[in-house]
Nucleic acid binder design. Structure first.
Length: 429
DNA sequence: GCACATGATTTCAA
DNA sequence: TTGAAATCATGTGC
């Protein structure tokens, strides 16, 4: 570093105080013709500095060398040091260290959480994985959408990293360029390493503000993507007809206690290709809506009662097959639930046929099954005494308080021999 | 575009 | 934790 001695720190204390030099002469006006001559020299030097950029490289190099060897150069340098010292003092106060940018930290955190920045997580973002987990991961549509989401997120991630790399490269190139320039300039004007450092910081700040814009727009893109793919409400899809039918069949065949067990929910979820929580939602909505407007669901109830009746009739025709509660109720869609309480129907059939309830499975669905069977009988003429279609399947299970009656209590089972009057005794419409 | 249906979410209570 | 009730937001049929 041959020019190192020319850097400003090498002139520390060489300013006007320790080395009156040129300015002193200029200020007090002493020196006569000698002073005039020096002024002329300084004018020449400054002129040369001003025009140096207009010259060719070789010319400029020659000029620079001539300037460096000029007898007035040290004096001029001192003047520049003095001016610089004053300027730096005025700037210094205004350039305190800034606190870490909260906005930038927020953006960084978000990009990290979304899996855009930081190490790439297996198969995509944490958010997508969380969403998949929240939905149970059972839905094939969901997994397809999530893979689409991951693909798009991966694209964003790629663009983000490419751009970031570009910015960093540009920043480094520019910084190197400026540093070289400043080092070069330090031959002819006083530049301290600290100033170079400060200049580098300024450049970095400028580039990080560009980076922040990049991060911001990346975050926006991720938010849009999220809202499009992962917001459950946005992507609400009606269940397919088959799923709705399965759920309705279960609901109406367990009308006295439409609270599927965890096991039953899982089974239903599996059958309907939906998640357990979707099954829970469905039953929650169904119960409340049924209770709110029983009349409206009358027809639907009748329809599913008829279905159940058909299957029950079919089952009873099989005679001995109905002896075991664990016998799969495969005769018809209504009885197709292959779960523990699917045997309720068979027990009801048996009880209607005059047999006693077998085993301990006098479960929560007895009331509804009895009602269903009454309906079977009404279909075959047993209870056909003047019931209209809308009266066929009466809403049962809802007690006077508006809640579902305790169907697990065997005493709530209405005897089939009571007749249709008793069936409608607890109806609200 | 509107009304209604429907799946999901939120809030609250038990 | 679960379910009731209210509500939101989207889907669907006219």
């Amino acid at each position: 570093m041959d020019e190192q001695p020319r850097l400003m720190h090498s002139h520390a204390g060489v300013g006007m105080a320790g080395h009156p030099g040129l300015s002193q002469h200029m200020q007090d006006g002493t020196g006569g013709t000698d002073s005039e001559g020096r002024k002329q020299d300084i004018g020449d030097i400054l002129q040369q500095i001003m025009t140096i950029t207009d010259q060719s490289l070789d010319e400029a190099q020659a000029r620079k060398h001539a300037l460096n060897c000029h007898r007035m150069k040290p004096a001029l340098f001192n003047v520049l040091c003095e001016i610089k010292e004053k300027t730096v003092l005025s700037i210094r106060g205004a350039q305190e260290e800034e606190p870490p940018d909260a906005q930038l930290m927020r953006l960084d955190n978000m990009l990290l959480a979304e899996g855009v920045s930081g190490p790439e997580k297996g198969g995509g973002s944490a958010a997508a994985a969380a969403a998949a987990a929240a939905s149970g991961g059972a839905n094939t549509d969901n997994s397809a959408e999530h893979s689409d989401y991951r693909a798009k997120l991966s694209q964003i991630r790629q663009i983000y990293h490419t751009e970031l790399e570009k910015y960093e490269q540009a920043c480094n190139e520019f910084t190197t360029h400026v540093m070289n320039l400043l080092r070069e300039q330090s031959r002819t004007r006083p530049i301290s390493p600290k100033e170079i450092e400060r200049m580098v910081n300024i450049i970095h700040r400028k580039f990080s503000s560009i980076q922040m814009q990049l991060k911001q727009s990346t975050c926006e893109a991720v938010m849009i993507l999220r809202s499009r793919f992962l917001d459950a409400r946005r992507k609400r899809r009606n269940f397919n007809k088959q799923a709705t039918e399965i759920l309705n069949e279960y609901f109406y065949s367990h009308l006295s206690n439409p609270y599927p067990s965890e096991e039953a929910k899982e089974e239903l979820a599996k059958k309907c290709s939906i998640t357990v929580s979707q099954v829970s939602n469905w039953f929650g909505n169904k119960r409340i809506r049924y209770k709110k407007n029983i009349g409206k669901f009358q027809e639907e109830a009748n329809m599913y009662a008829a279905k159940t009746a058909v299957s029950a009739a079919s089952v009873s025709a099989h005679g001995s097959q109905a002896n075991s509660p664990s016998t799969p109720n495969s005769a018809g869609s209504a009885g197709s639930f292959n779960m523990s309480n699917s045997g309720d129907l068979f027990m009801s059939v048996q009880s209607l046929n005059g047999d006693s309830y077998q085993g301990a499975q006098v479960g929560a669905n007895v009331q509804s099954q009895v009602d269903t069977l009454r309906h079977v009988i009404s279909q075959t003429g047993g209870y056909s005494d003047g019931l209209t279609a809308s009266q066929m399947y009466s809403p049962q299970g809802i007690n006077a308080n508006g809640g579902w009656q305790d169907a697990a209590t065997p005493s709530s089972v209405t005897s089939p021999t009571e007749g249709p009057g008793s069936v409608h005794s607890d109806t609200s419409n």
